[in-house]
Write a protein that binds this DNA or RNA. Sequence first.
DNA 1: TTTATAATAGTTAAAAAGACTATAAGCTTG
DNA 2: CAAGCTTATAGTCTTTTTAACTATTATAAA
Lengths: 248, 248
Amino acid sequence: MTENADSATSDEKIFFYGKIQELPDDVIDTLSNDSVVFGCDDSTLKVLLVRHAEGDSAGEWALPGGWVRYNESVDDSAVRMLQHLTGVHDIYLEQLHVFSDVHRVPHRRIITTAYYALIRPDDHAIAAGFSTYDVRWVDIHDLPELIYDHADIIDMALHRLRHKVRHEPIGFNLLNKKFTLLQLQELYEAILDVKLDKPNFRRKMLKMNLLISSNEKQTGVSHRAAKLYEFDEAVYHELEQQGFNFEI
Amino acid sequence: MTENADSATSDEKIFFYGKIQELPDDVIDTLSNDSVVFGCDDSTLKVLLVRHAEGDSAGEWALPGGWVRYNESVDDSAVRMLQHLTGVHDIYLEQLHVFSDVHRVPHRRIITTAYYALIRPDDHAIAAGFSTYDVRWVDIHDLPELIYDHADIIDMALHRLRHKVRHEPIGFNLLNKKFTLLQLQELYEAILDVKLDKPNFRRKMLKMNLLISSNEKQTGVSHRAAKLYEFDEAVYHELEQQGFNFEI
DNA sequence: TTTATAATAGTTAAAAAGACTATAAGCTTG
DNA sequence: CAAGCTTATAGTCTTTTTAACTATTATAAA
């Protein structure tokens, strides 16, 4: 990052569509970022949306986004916005697509680079102090109407997530560092909208040797506690070098 | 497209890094596109590069690219540039990534959206009349030094191609509409840098039911002529709906 | 007609996927 | 504390797929 994200202290750092005329003077006025932030709660897939309380687009739901500054990359602008929004510093974040239709924003030419991010349950609490807008986790099956082309962006992000999650071990970024095999299975079921066989899923996962079996167990459940596992990034990268292909 | 690509008649429509100060006045001066154009010849994977004859970057190799106009999307700007460069109108083209490091271009802030394109052998001839620069197919294993971050862009494009070609039937866009099974196999071998077993590859391909067996055969070969096949896009999209997953 | 080259067909063993059944562990409630 | 419930975990068996081969056939060219 070009600059410390925490230097951002005011709400204006987050994309405020309703105040589009009052741009800070250190941003490129045609370029924005928008992020589809995924989270998984109660085995349902959710997206983080914001709603502005003032301005032209007050009351309308939108993806969280922000402007790109002259002295930062587009990626950095997205990281900065997300850190400010969620308070989390090691977010899984990937570029999704550039949306640049001439008429995607009325009366303005704004080209946005869309991202998708994966957030762990432990980090679902949203940083407080956002007086000028609502921030909310919304079930992916129950999205409200969104401004501009944001519905298209979510649509593409969901397709990308569904595809990528089957071919690369990125799903782990939607779980806490330590998780049970059933949590992992339910995550896949939520994302892919399928039902999986428990013993087979379990066997397949374990055979890949990508899970570190911790000695800890689940707590606070009213049944036999399952063992907690951790994703082994080091082993994955090693296997990847050797041509290993993660597949669900 | 916002505008007919053929309205472009001069070389200035293609990114001319050496003349960066002499921008047309209908472009967004911070935004460009750059494309990694892949082609497969003699079972080797190649990339289309340009070399400018005049200006600051004369003599240096670069990816073909262009500016984004106010009245077109970034995607359209890439299509326009590629059509002008290759003369081909139905190019397979996908967004790759936005490269936006503050210092990627010296003394200038230029944010580029990178694309990758796949060109069929039949279309490898480059449209004539590019007086101000060289255009050349270069073996992927034998790349010259490139300006700016273009080597990184090719690197990412190659990774993306290698990954995507294994999971989606896009490889066909690097072959002519009609091809033999051995050509297809050699294409995969060239892209993935592996050796495949002929009978097994053949069986696997045919079992997918994605190939229309034409009644035609190869001509001009000094051995038994192989049957020509065509990729069946319609069947693929149907199977895709049903959850079918292309895998090599 | 021989020869070279690649097309195409077939075989077999090992591995993986899929659909199950069975048992064990541990909380909860009467 | 025992019965019952829920989930963890182990194991079986069948079907498919993959992988490594061998064998045969067609065709242009010498």
